[in-house]
Design a protein around this nucleic acid. Structure first.
Ligand SMILES: [Zn+2]
Ligand SMILES: [Zn+2]
Ligand SMILES: [Zn+2]
Ligand SMILES: [Zn+2]
Lengths: 146, 146
DNA sequence: AAGCTAATGAGAAAGATTATCATTAGCAAT
DNA sequence: ATTGCTAATGATAATCTTTCTCATTAGCTT
């Protein structure tokens, strides 16, 4: 996560401004793995013009309240997507040549008990409170291979 | 998220220069989760002065030949470490407050068959050739919590 | 309507990584 | 050892994503 500015501890929830709603809406309308610039440009095409800094701030806000999640797939920019709840969680496979990202959700159920055990172990041995996990596979996609 | 542009494809053959050996040696001597700047500064303290660009190029080279691996733990800079072979692989738990990274290797064996099945499924359904995977847990460490 | 303060916009700044290019050095063949 | 070829290096500029600054706007609350 970028070295964001320090966040105040006991603040109330932020305000639902038109800009934040517009950013969220891009994801609700199906946007997957969008970068800040992606969101910025999509809104621009709809003549909704917000500053790029506001896009970043809105994304941070939406992460803070739990609606979005941030990923780094190695493209040089952070990607964002809706934050599934645990049971529906999906994971990612990334092509290391073209950067294509594929969602998969098979085996999530089968992995759940393993995840639960790891969480317990980590919390017991290291005093961590685990909030989230991600499994990521890297390789070469069919187009880039051969 | 590491800033800067995407890594470009570069040629494959390489020479074992003193600089590349020096960079590798930092990891062989026990360096874990080092950033390019970490490596640069450690070598500097030993009066081995290479340019920061050469550090980056050496890290890329060492990744290319399979000796190193790159991670992004959200600190804003990429981290590098020795590339374990599959059976000894470890995974990471990251504190989202202070950025501390902990290695853990428990449950790796138990996860192996799950990983194998996921790989087969992904290769069959999507035509991917999987090279690596990583499991990452995020949360708050004992120092930062409470 | 007034007052408070969070949020915004524009642009500057920061910071990590990559590109450029003249120079150096590793390697192979002589 | 010398020559010749070419990859690698060093210094630095450029690039790109993300954050900071600060004057202004807008969302709540009273
Ligand atoms: Zn591909
Ligand atoms: Zn996804
Ligand atoms: Zn911590
Ligand atoms: Zn590690």
């Amino acid at each position: 996560m970028p070295k964001g500015r320090k966040r105040q501890n006991r603040k109330r929830i932020g305000r639902w401004t038109a800009q934040r709603l517009a950013v969220l809406d891009e994801f609700l309308q199906g946007g997957e793995h969008l970068s800040a610039r992606d969101v910025y440009q999509r809104l621009r095409e709809k003549e909704i013009n917000l500053g790029i800094a506001t896009v970043y701030r809105s994304l941070d806000f939406l992460i803070e309240i739990g609606l979005l999640r941030q990923y780094d797939f190695g493209s040089g920019e952070a990607k964002y997507e809706l934050n599934d709840d645990e049971a529906d969680q999906h994971h990612h496979m990334v092509c290391r040549v073209c950067g294509k990202v594929i969602n998969y959700s098979k085996f999530v159920k089968r992995g759940l008990s393993l995840v639960k055990d790891i969480k317990m172990e980590l919390e017991k041995n290291y005093g961590f409170k685990i909030n989230s996990h991600q499994f990521e596979f890297r390789g070469v996609c069919g187009v880039c291979g051969d």
